[in-house]
Design a binder for these strands. Structure first.
Lengths: 223, 223, 223, 223
DNA sequence: TATGAATGAGGATTCATTCAT
DNA sequence: GATGAATGAATCCTCATTCAT
C-alpha cells in the first residue's frame, strides 16, 4: 500500500559480512515489522489524529504485540515523526529534480503541480500533510523536522528557478519568486477542504489546480 | 480579549418585567461566566488542540469551578463547537457585505483580503480557523456546522460577485469564479505556516497577500 | 396518586392561633410542596434506587427548585427515610386491627393477605418495600426505623393472635406462631419476583397467595 | 474464601502443546488474578451495593492495579454480572440433582432446604442472592441472566417433581406444584431479614426452615 | 421562603509505557 | 527479540450540597 515505509533507511551494519546474497532473514524480518508498524500507524494517525490514536490499535493492525512497537520507536511521538520522515523524504528529490529541469517556467510549474496531484493528493501522503498541518503546532520538533527536511530543501530550489524565470522575463512579476508558497497554497487547501467537507461538497483537485494555473499564467486556449 | 464571546446570543426570556435598567445581575453574571469560559477555552484549545486540552485548565483559567463549565456546555465537544460558532458567525455578515459592495472587482477582492488580514489573521480568529483545520476531520459535526454557517454563506456570494466580474470583463478568465477558494488559499497557508514555522521563518502575511493580489490582477505600479 | 404523602405529620405549631378556619395558606402550601417532593422521590427512588437517584430529577418532577428540597429534608438520606415512614406508618394500624379481629384464624390470615394484596401490592407501597429490601442493609438507620415502626409493632400482634390460635386448636402446630414471617414470605417473594422477572414470567400474586393459603390451611373445597 | 471464583471456565486454548505438567504460569497467574478480583468484588458489592462500590477499592482489596480489572472485565457492570454467574452457576446442577432423586417428596424437599441452608445461606452466596434482589430491577440484563441461568433451569425440574408427587398422592394439593416459589420463599426472607435486622433480632434460619417444613408437611413427632 | 448557579470531591475509564517470561 | 499482562497517572463528567439573591 505505502511502500515508502519498507525501505529501512537506518540499518545497523549487521553482524559484519553475513553470507553474501543479501540481508539475512533476521534483519529482513525486522524491517518488515518496522514497515508494518509504520503502515499501521499511518492508517490510525490519519483516521484519528495523534492524541486519539491508540498504540494498541496500531499494534493490532500491524500484527505485532504492543511492546514490539517500543523495540522500533522510542515512544508514540517518535513513531509519529518517523512516519512523517519516511513518507515525505523520498519526495524531496523528485520535486527538486522537477524544479531544476530546463524547461519553460510554465512547464516546470505544471510538472510540480502534477507531482503534487499524483504523488501527494493521490496517495496516503496527503494524510501525512494533513497530519502535519493539524498537529505541527503542538509538536514543534515535528514541525522543525518537516521544515528542515522538506521545506528548507524544496523552497530555495523553487525560489531560485522562479527568480530565474523573472529575470528571463518568463514571469510578469516577482510575486511567485518571493512567495513560492503561492504555488502550492491551492493544493494544501484542496487537501484540507476534502478532508473536512469532502462529503458535503467535494472539490475537484485537478480542476482546481488547472484553474490555479490559469490564474498564474492566463487561460490556455484549449483544454 | 476576544469580545465576540461576550455577546450572549442565546438568552432565555427572563422573568418578564425585571426592574427597568438592564439585565439583572443574575443574567449578567451568567453571561460573564459563559464568556470567560469561552475565552479560556480558546486559549487552551489553541495552545493544545482539542484532545490535549484539559477542562480543568479551562476552568482554572476562566476562574470558575470545573462543574460550572457543564452548566453552560453539555460537554467538551459542545464547548468546542460553541467556541467556533461564537468566534466566526459575526464575521460572515461583514464578509458578505464586502462582497456585495458595488466597486471594481479588484477593490472588492482587496477589501476581502484586508478583512481577512485584520479580522482573522490579526485576531484570535486565526487560531479558530487553525483549530477547524486541525480537528475538523475528526469532528464531522464541527466541520458541518462550519460549512453550513460560514462557507455555505460566504462562498456563493463571492462566487456570484466574481461571476459578475467575468461577465463584465473585469476578469480575464473564470478561474476565480469557479473556485473562489483560490482567493483565500494563501491566507490559509499563512495561518498554517506561521503556526508551524513562525519561529523558524516567519511569513509576512501582508506582503504575501499583496503578492497574491499581484498574481491575481497583475503588479500595481506603486506600493 | 399516593395520598399518604400529603398528611404533614410533623407540623410546627404555626404562629400561635392563626385565624380560625384551618391552616393558613402559608402552611398549606408548605405541605403541598413537601408532599410533592415525597411523591417525586417515590417515583425516582423506585425507578433507580437510592444511589442512582438524582435530587435534580426529584426537584424537577416535584416542580420545585433543587434547593427547596433542603428546606424540607436535611439531606438525601433523610428524604429517603421520610418517604418510607410516610408510606408505611399509616398501614400499621390497619394491620394491627385486622390481626385483632375476633374471627377464626383462617379468616384473620385471609384478611391480612388481602390487606397485603390491596394495600401494598396494589399500590406504590410495594416499591417502598422493595426499596427497603434493596437498600436496607446499606442504611442501618433506615432498617432500624422500619423495624421499630413497622415490624416491631405488627409482628407481636400477629404472633399473639397465632399463639392464641394454637392454644385454641385452630392450628395443628406452632410453626406460624413462632415464625409469623412464614405468613408474608410469599408476598415478599411476589414483590421481588415481579420487579425482577415480571417481564419475563409474571407471577400472579392473587393465585400465589391463594395457593399459599392452601398450604397453610389445606385446599378449600370451592373457589 | 470463595472457591467458585477460581475455576477459570473461560480459558483460551493456549498455544497448543505447552510443556506437559499443567497450565503454564502465565495462564495460571491470569486465573488467580481474575479470581482475586471476583473475590474482592464480592466483598465490596456485598458491603456497599453496586453503585456505591468503588473499583478502586476492589482493586486494592484484590491486590491489583485499577487498570487490571479492565483486562478481565469490560466494565463495572460486567464484573458484577460475572460475579453472579460465577457464584451461582455451579449450584444449579446440584439442585437439579437433588430434585431428581427418587425419594419421598418430603425427603426431596428437605434435601433442597438443606442445600439452601448449607450452600447458600452458609456461604457468600447469600450475599449474591441479596445483591440480585437489591439490584436486579435496575439491571434488567442481570435479572435476565439470572433468570435464564438459574431460575429457568431449576424451577421446571422442581415443578415436575412436585407435580409427580401430587399425582402419586404424596401431597394433598397442587399448590406447591403450581408455585414452587412457595418452597423457597422463607429462605429468601431469611436472607433479607438477617441482612436488615440481623443485629436487632436475628432469625434462626434452621429453625425457620424447620417450621416451614412443618407447615408444608405437618409437624414431625420428634426432631 | 424559594431559587438555581456554583462548587468540588469523587469515581469510572483509558492508554502510554514497562518488564517478567 | 517478542510478547502481552500489569501499572497508575490522567481526565472527563456527575451530583449532593451550599448560599447569594
Amino acid at each position: 500500500m505505502v511502500d515508502d515505509l519498507s525501505s529501512a533507511g537506518r540499518r545497523r551494519a549487521g553482524r559484519a559480512g553475513r553470507a553474501a546474497g543479501g540481508r539475512g532473514t533476521r534483519a529482513a524480518r525486522r524491517d518488515e515489522r518496522r514497515a508494518a508498524i509504520l503502515a499501521a500507524a499511518l492508517e490510525e494517525f490519519a483516521a484519528r489524529g495523534f492524541a486519539a490514536t491508540r498504540l494498541d490499535d496500531v499494534a493490532r493492525r500491524a500484527g505485532v504485540a504492543k511492546g514490539t512497537i517500543y523495540l522500533h520507536f522510542r515512544d508514540k511521538e517518535s513513531l509519529f515523526q518517523e512516519l512523517v520522515r519516511a513518507m515525505l523524504s523520498p519526495l524531496v528529490g523528485t520535486i527538486e529534480a522537477a524544479a531544476l529541469r530546463d524547461l519553460p517556467i510554465r512547464a516546470v510549474v505544471e510538472m510540480i503541480v502534477d507531482l503534487f496531484v499524483n504523488e501527494i493528493y493521490g496517495t496516503r501522503r496527503k494524510d501525512v500533510i494533513r497530519l502535519i498541518i493539524a498537529e505541527g503546532s503542538r509538536f514543534p520538533r515535528l514541525a522543525e523536522v518537516y521544515y528542515r527536511e522538506v521545506i528548507a530543501r524544496v523552497l530555495p530550489v523553487m525560489r531560485a528557478r522562479l527568480t530565474l524565470a523573472v529575470e528571463r522575463g518568463e514571469l510578469p512579476h516577482d510575486a511567485l519568486a518571493r512567495f513560492p508558497q503561492l504555488l502550492v497554497a491551492p493544493a494544501l487547501v484542496a487537501i484540507i477542504w476534502n478532508a473536512l467537507f469532502g462529503r458535503l461538497a467535494p472539490l475537484d483537485v485537478r480542476e482546481l489546480m488547472r484553474a490555479h494555473l490559469d490564474v498564474l499564467f492566463g487561460a490556455r486556449s484549449a483544454t
